[in-house]
Nucleic acid binder design. Structure first.
Length: 554
RNA sequence: GCUCCUGUAGUUCAAUGGAUAGAAUGCAUCCUUGCGGAGGAUGUGAUGUAGGUUCGAUUCCUACCAGGAGCACCA
């Protein structure tokens, strides 16, 4: 790595001056005029020395042996030492950027990583919140794969619990045939409403809930089994659309059993309180949470406790990630504390990380799944797709619907992944989904365009070559491409797909600028064609990491 | 009330303690020759308030103001 070479030379120079530094940090300046690598070492060391940072920087540079990859070294600003790389370095680094494997690394080689995400509940609507969790989880899974990890994607679905009792109560009461997912959604929101407003309904629902667990009532079992099947089929279709293939589905019914046993066999850790079994988190700076409720049923907490073990039996993981909305952050802290004690030997708590993402909220107000006031993923995607079709109207494209769906999903996924994971997304139907500028479709469009250029070059018999033309001056694109692998490393380290989004949008912008000012396909343009190939390949790999598909034409 | 998160152009988002706080969108002006205009170029415009730490603060600390989430049998 070039940065290692720079570090070594710099240490030597410091040595000559009788100085030393434990760690020398190189970074890429935001502004290209400040070079390709930069270090603030002089600013830090000048504190101990009496020299001014700028003078010290100049002394360091005087004693610095310039590696062949470096064009020039200069001192700027308050005392930064900036390194400008040579065009030969860029030209040779481009070779990597045209490789299929560009961006892959080995930081997670041999590691078993399990990621749980999406977690919709049968009998309920797959809403836009699930869309958000899925998008983030899928992207992180792919980034882990690029790091060489053995990855398992898992999904944990609530197939028991009050929400189902509510839906079943409504179905039984109306004696209605349930055939579609919409029927289920309707039944749920109706049952949910009655649960809040009608005491008698509430009692009946609680009664049904017990029978769902015990499976003693044939009528209930029949409705339950049928509804679950309809729901899961519907989810499968959605996963396919979104580009996620789960390796394993877990269900609350199994996790509940396991969890209850674990709570019972660790009785000393828990306390009885008002008929429930609780964990007093106050002793650990946390709060109290119920694990087994007063009716004797395991809550989500106990289920998740069981799930950690079930996951390990399935795939003895080194790292486990649970991706969900950040509304459960506090509860997850409690859970991890309990896991520390319960699974002391197994060390699950240390291997498990909860990633809480922000909420998708509507500018018009809050979304509530209890009142049935939710926006389904289907309706949102449909609406975006209609807008895409409008833009596509005048274009000649085969498979219109299919392409429009790809573009719609890309628009949505990008708008989720372009910002920090923990932050809420304020959603405005008219404005939020963009097809231009800082958007998924822009990235797709740029990739398709670059590929189209390559096709034309090929048809004209012009072959890409990374041999530099005599009068070549290195351009922004070259100075960006070689950073892609570093970006991916950091994206995993920080669990921030947004770093990849940012990188791709900058790269695409830079390429579009290049495209607008230069003719690429021409005699003597072999290097520019090579550059285009590198950009297309990098965009392709980057978009893959965001979970975005690329159409042939759009 | 307690805990956590967030306050950056009109709007939606960036900025591992660094250099002139970046994009996009909006608005204004411009780009037929040359390969996809879902594009390109130029201009416009912002760190909630008050202190502190630091050579250097959007970033760290304190207080305040504003918004959001969580705080016992939902998940």
């Amino acid at each position: 790595m070039i940065s290692d070479i720079l570090k070594e030379k710099l240490q030597k120079s410091l040595g000559k001056l009788g100085l030393s530094a434990d760690k020398v940090i190189f970074e890429h300046p935001g502004d290209f005029s400040h070079g390709d690598y930069s270090t603030n070492i002089a600013l830090i060391l000048s504190k101990k020395e009496k020299n001014s940072p700028k003078e010290l920087a100049e002394k360091i540079v005087e004693n610095l042996e310039k590696p062949k990859e470096v064009e020039k070294i200069d001192v700027a600003g308050a005392g930064f030492i900036n390194f400008h790389l040579t065009k030969e370095f860029f030209a040779s680094s481009l070779k990597d950027a045209t490789k299929e494997s560009f961006g892959k690394n080995k930081t997670l080689a041999g590691k078993k990583v399990i990621l749980e995400y999406t977690d919709p509940n049968p009998f309920k609507i797959f809403h836009i919140g699930h869309l958000m969790t899925n998008t983030i989880g899928e992207s992180l899974s792919r980034i882990a794969e690029f790091g060489g990890a053995d990855v398992r994607r898992v999904n944990y679905q609530g197939d028991v619990g009050l929400h189902i009792a509510k839906a079943i109560w409504s179905i039984l009461k109306d004696k209605k045939k349930v055939e579609t997912n919409e029927d289920l959604g309707e039944a749920y929101s109706k049952g949910s409403k009655s649960f809040e407003e009608d005491e008698k309904a509430k009692e009946e629902i609680i009664e049904i809930n017990k029978k769902i667990y015990s499976r003693e009532d044939e009528e209930i079992n029949r409705v339950y089994d049928q509804g679950k099947e309809i729901s899961l089929d519907n989810f499968e279709k959605m996963y396919e659309k979104l580009g996620t293939e789960f390796d394993k589905l877990f269900f609350e019914s199994e996790a509940g059993k396991e969890g209850r046993e674990i709570v019972e066999s660790n009785a000393n850790l828990f306390q009885k309180s008002d008929g429930a079994i609780v964990f007093k988190g106050e002793n650990y700076g946390l709060h109290t949470r119920v694990f087994i409720n007063s009716v004797g049923l395991p809550t989500y907490e106990a289920k998740e406790l069981g799930l950690a073990k079930i996951k390990d039996e399935y795939f003895s993981y080194d790292e486990s990630y649970v991706i969900s909305g950040n509304e459960v952050n506090a509860y997850f802290d409690v859970l991890l504390e309990v896991m520390k004690h319960v699974y002391e030997k197994e060390g699950f708590a240390n291997k498990t990380t909860h990633i809480g993402h922000g909420m998708l909220r509507l500018s018009e107000g809050k979304m509530s799944s209890r009142t049935g006031d939710v926006i389904s993923a289907d309706s949102l995607l449909g609406e975006i797709q209609d807008k895409v079709l409008e833009v596509m109207e005048e274009r000649e494209v085969e498979n219109r619907e299919e392409v429009a769906e790809m573009v719609a999903i890309s628009a949505l996924k990008y708008s989720i992944l372009k910002q920090g994971i923990g932050r809420d997304i304020i959603f405005n139907f008219d404005k939020s989904i963009s097809f231009e500028g800082d958007s998924g479709p822009y990235l797709q469009y740029t990739t398709v365009r670059a590929k189209s250029v390559l096709d034309i070059a090929k048809a004209k018999g012009l072959k890409p070559s990374n041999e530099l033309p005599d009068d070549w001056e290195s351009i922004e694109i070259e100075r960006m491409l070689y950073k892609f692998p570093e970006v991916i490393l950091r994206a995993w380290q920080d669990k921030s797909p947004q770093l990849i989004s940012k990188f791709l949008i900058d790269l695409a912008g830079s390429f579009n600028g290049f495209y607008a000012t230069q003719k690429i396909v021409e005699e003597g343009g072999e290097y520019k064609i090579f550059l285009t190939k590198a950009v297309a390949n990098t965009l392709k790999n980057g978009l893959h990491l965001l979970g975005i598909k690329i159409p042939e034409k759009m």
